[in-house]
């Protein structure tokens, strides 16, 4: 019972990370396309400025929770995905510094330089996170100690000796990028006005078609790559609620987008992300890291979790902690609600 509870807690935290930092990354990916002048770019940065750091904390807090509840999973996946995780770290460093350093000097070399770094780092992060999800669905060659090491690529086939990147994980990476481009563009449209808003709406509208197409393609590919998915949905049909949420949310993105109700379209996009991620999580449950060679070597919530005492006592600090954190977010987002004003403080 406790491992399953903690599994869903971690899953929800990671989903929240993707929804929250996802719009920062998406805004970064469309930064150069939606904002041309310095003032416009400051608008984009100001739309995420006060919150991006807090959003990124969901990755750290989710990672910490994963570490304490499923130490075996943390140890084996982090060392196995060594190279891509290090690159994620470098990209996170570049993204963070570009947001914070850009505003300090006003000249024609400094600011455009950080704008480009910000855009590239955000784009690559979206692709890497998608590819990471693809790796978890496909499975990795775990040995009997629950360990593995993946090179960046081998022959680009999801066979018995895969790399981090194969056609399937790259496909998921592109899918993630398009999803976050739509998500980020809707956020920017919601937070800005005039030209920036018009361009962001247009990008979100175009991205929607790509997202819809890839939703179908990636779903078909995933069911072929990971047989457990079909099995899960066949055994517990109640699980269809998750993909149903994703489909309904994606349709709502379209409808609200047409009506130019950016805020609602953004929320629908957030629900779409949650629906897709929970579908994946439900599909592989109770596995947390499938083995692609011998399924019996897979890491599950049972063989990767911490002992019962730790999981039980963890609830005592986790529940108040997460409620307080939710309170900060509610306060922070309410304080910075509404359209951004470029002449005000910061960025």
């Amino acid at each position: 019972m406790l491992p399953a509870l903690w599994f869903w807690i971690v899953a929800v935290m990671i989903a929240l990370y993707v929804v929250l930092d996802g719009f920062d990354l998406g805004a970064g990916a469309v930064h150069l396309a939606v904002a041309k002048t310095d003032e416009e770019r400051r608008m984009v940065l100001k739309s995420i400025g006060p919150v991006w750091d807090g959003n990124e904390v969901w990755l750290l807090a989710g990672g910490g929770t994963l570490y304490f509840a499923f130490p075996q999973l943390y140890a084996s996946s982090f060392s196995g995905f060594y190279l891509p995780l290090m690159m994620v770290l470098w990209l996170l460093i570049l993204r963070g510094t570009s947001v914070e350093f850009r505003s300090h000097i006003r000249n024609a070399v400094w600011r455009p330089m950080w704008d480009v770094i910000f855009c590239i780092a955000s784009t690559l992060l979206a692709v890497f996170f998608g590819a990471a999800l693809g790796n978890v669905v496909r499975g990795v060659p775990l040995n009997k100690d629950g360990e593995f090491f993946l090179p960046l690529w081998t022959n680009f086939q999801p066979g018995p000796e895969p790399g981090i990147l194969d056609w399937y994980t790259v496909l998921v990476g592109v899918f993630a990028l398009l999803t976050l481009v739509q998500h980020g563009a809707l956020w920017v449209a919601h937070k800005t006005e005039n030209a920036v808003q018009q361009r962001a709406r247009r990008i979100a509208r175009l991205a929607w078609y790509g997202v819809a197409l890839l939703t179908v393609v990636v779903t078909i590919a995933s069911f072929r790559i990971q047989p457990k998915l079909a099995e899960s949905f066949a055994n517990w049909p109640a699980g269809y609620v998750f993909p149903a949420l994703a489909v309904a949310a994606l349709a709502s993105v379209y409808v609200f987008g047409r009506r130019q109700e950016d805020g609602k379209a953004f929320l629908a996009s957030a629900l779409y992300i949650v629906g897709m991620l929970t579908s994946v999580v439900f599909g592989v449950f109770p596995m947390v890291l499938p083995a692609n060679t011998d399924p019996s070597l897979s890491l599950t919530i049972y063989n990767a979790s911490a002992p019962e005492y730790g999981l039980r006592v963890g609830l005592w600090w986790y529940i108040p902690g997460i409620l307080i954190a939710a309170g900060y977010f509610w306060f922070l987002y309410r304080r910075f609600a509404g359209k951004v004003q470029v002449e005000a403080e910061g960025y």
Binding site: G64, T65, F68, P71, S77, F78, L85
Partner: peptide, 29 residues
């Protein structure tokens, strides 16, 4: 935080159930 897993995985496997508490609390609180 990442390096506990990436470079020190045998340590994390053995001790994550203990020091994971203080690390996760750091994130949360």
């Amino acid at each position: 935080e990442f390096q506990f897993g990436t470079n020190w995985s045998r340590f994390s496997k053995a001790a994550g159930g203990v020091i994971g508490h203080t690390l996760a609390m750091e994130g949360l609180y």
